[in-house]
Design a protein around this nucleic acid. Structure first.
Lengths: 114, 114
DNA sequence: ATGTTACATTCGTCTATTCGCATATGTCAC
DNA sequence: GTGACATATGCGAATAGACGAATGTAACAT
């Protein structure tokens, strides 16, 4: 019966979004798309120190956005929900269009000043 | 020719996500879904002080996520891209499922301890 | 038990965000 | 011009986020 209040939902919604609000975390999530990866592999792939990646993974874990699974000495991380990647892709498209429009505007301005 | 580097894209991607990383901003964006709204209406609808809403709108504006259009004394705000709302909806669904699963788990635990 | 590899956490510091409050700007009506 | 309304911004305090560097824990092999 623990119904969640409207503002609590908004808070949780914002926390999930905040999980995406860091370039490294976005890169980590995309690294996990092809399949599970362990921490050192991610760190190596992104050229970032392992503790930094571990901390970012903790942020994502706390928000239920990735799943950690121990396999012996290593820990495999997975994206918890494919819709997280879908949302990232949507926002990436928004960004791509914005950059495209800016480039077009710049070209227009350039040709206007020729 | 201004090609944007990989990490710059990630930075911009993260900035858009950061635009969503606040409960009030999410509420503002959903307020704009039915149609354009001016600042005071949003502030009244959310029961928040006008300067706070104005600042949040500035954050969204700077990231190109909303469009401001002056009409006389008032300024009408619109969501710049419908995919922003789609992304929010996706993440909201992720959250809803998570809450549903947590509730189910709690119920299981409760029945196990009967 | 020791060593080695994999991962997580703590600490101190720095930067960024958010807020309330007051105030500035902008637009219109008169 | 003045006044009234709509929106934006400056300022200071409080809070949160991210980092590097060092250290702690966990799993396994020998």
């Amino acid at each position: 019966m623990s119904s969640v209040s409207e503002s609590e939902v908004m808070q949780l919604h914002a926390e999930i979004c905040a999980g995406l609000a860091d370039p490294k975390r976005i890169m980590i999530l995309y690294e996990l798309v092809p399949g599970p990866r362990n921490v050192n592999d991610i760190a190596a792939a992104l050229g970032a120190p392992q503790p930094q990646i571990s901390r970012h993974l903790k942020v994502l874990r706390e928000r239920g956005m990735v799943i950690a699974e121990r396999h012996g000495a290593t820990v495999a991380y997975t994206v918890a929900d494919a819709r997280i990647i879908q949302a990232l892709d949507l926002l990436r498209q928004v960004l791509a269009d914005k950059l495209r429009n800016q480039a077009a505007l710049a070209a227009t301005a350039a040709s206007a000043s020729e």
